[in-house]
């Protein structure tokens, strides 16, 4: 197990290096510069400022310097918000993004799980159809539509919850709900199809024959198996959601990290592009690793297979 973990860690570092390198060189292909007043700037001053960012050096030198700093954990200062450290900016925004993300996942998992299980148990009835409709709606309605509708109806028309902002916990409810739609539909879909398959297995008949209660069969035997694919998607999905959704954060005006994904690119903020990419990549790689470990917990067959290696 230790050997397995160590080799996985090695792969993780290599993966990160590949991501960083590709992003670094692609980013330099972006048209334009960091200058905010580019259009009107005299060429001499333009060069002066570009040099002050160290961007006048050959690309490979810049790459080398960047890696050197990265190893020391220094992501540098933002080129767009002058003088502010990229690490600080990302860490300042992260709690807000993470909170609505985690709440979104929690809402989503609870509701999605319930929907999926009920649909599988009541296969072919109206309950099943309703759950399918919800799942399809969840996948096909983009979160910005859901966010816009929630903000307008619940916030403006009914005045139940705040329209937008970030002042207390109430402000996090609507954005979390908006984010949860996708989770609900993903969970419901996976759980339903797995449950249907599992319920047809021979060991379910055995369990029934043993005289176990229906609830016990569903929870202890069917659900655990049905959760495997759900967990596979849940890891990356969680990371995806907690690192900040650009549109949901924008619509509810949440000071999270989502905006940096878009803003850093439109302003050619190289340090922020790299910072946010690295942050996201690390979370993602770690999440996938954790999911792999979790398989073992849920499915003994996987644990045995890796033990044999």
């Amino acid at each position: 197990m230790l050997k397995y973990t160590l080799s996985r860690l090695g792969y993780m570092v290599v993966t990160l290096w590949v991501i960083v390198t590709i992003t670094f060189f692609l980013m330099h292909l972006l048209p334009g510069t960091q200058l905010k007043n580019e259009e009107k700037l005299p060429p001499e001053i333009r060069e002066q400022i570009i040099a002050s960012y160290g961007l006048d050096k050959p690309l490979m030198v810049q790459y080398g310097l960047f890696l050197e700093k990265l190893v020391q954990g220094d992501l540098g200062n933002s080129m767009n918000l002058d003088g502010r450290s990229v690490t600080d900016l990302i860490l300042q925004g992260f709690p807000a993004s993470a909170l609505i993300g985690i709440q979104g996942v929690i809402f989503g998992v609870i509701i999605g799980l319930a929907l999926g299980i009920i649909a599988a148990l009541r296969r072919g009835t109206w309950v099943d159809n309703l759950s399918t409709v919800i799942a399809i709606a969840g996948v096909s309605v983009p979160s910005f539509v859901a966010a816009g509708l929630l903000s307008f109806w619940v916030g403006v028309k009914w005045g139940i919850l705040p329209v937008a902002g970030w002042e207390s916990w109430e402000y996090s409810i609507l954005p979390s709900l908006a984010l949860s739609f996708f989770v609900i539909s993903q969970m419901a879909r996976y759980v339903r199809s797995e449950m249907v398959e599992v319920l047809d297995q021979d060991y379910m008949k055995t369990a029934k024959a043993k005289g176990l209660k229906r609830s016990a069969i569903v929870v202890r035997h069917a659900m655990r198996n049905a959760l495997i694919p759900a967990i596979t998607v849940l890891g990356p999905l969680t990371i995806n959601i907690i690192t900040g959704s650009v549109v949901v954060e924008q619509i509810f005006n949440i000071p999270g990290d989502g905006k940096y994904f878009v803003d850093s690119i439109t302003t050619n903020d190289y340090t922020m592009i790299m910072g946010i990419t690295i942050f996201y990549a690390i979370l993602f790689i770690v999440a996938i690793f954790l999911v792999d470990l979790l398989y073992g917990v849920i499915d003994p067959r996987i644990r045995i297979a890796s033990a044999k290696e």
């Binding site: 903000s151 916030g155 937008a164 902002g165 924008q250 619509i251 509810f252 005006n253 905006k259």
Partner: peptide, 15 residues
């Protein structure tokens, strides 16, 4: 308040 989204600005104004 720093608000980027146009629709959100209108919603905040109307409330």
């Amino acid at each position: 308040q720093i608000v980027k989204d146009g629709g959100t600005q209108i919603n905040l104004y109307n409330t």
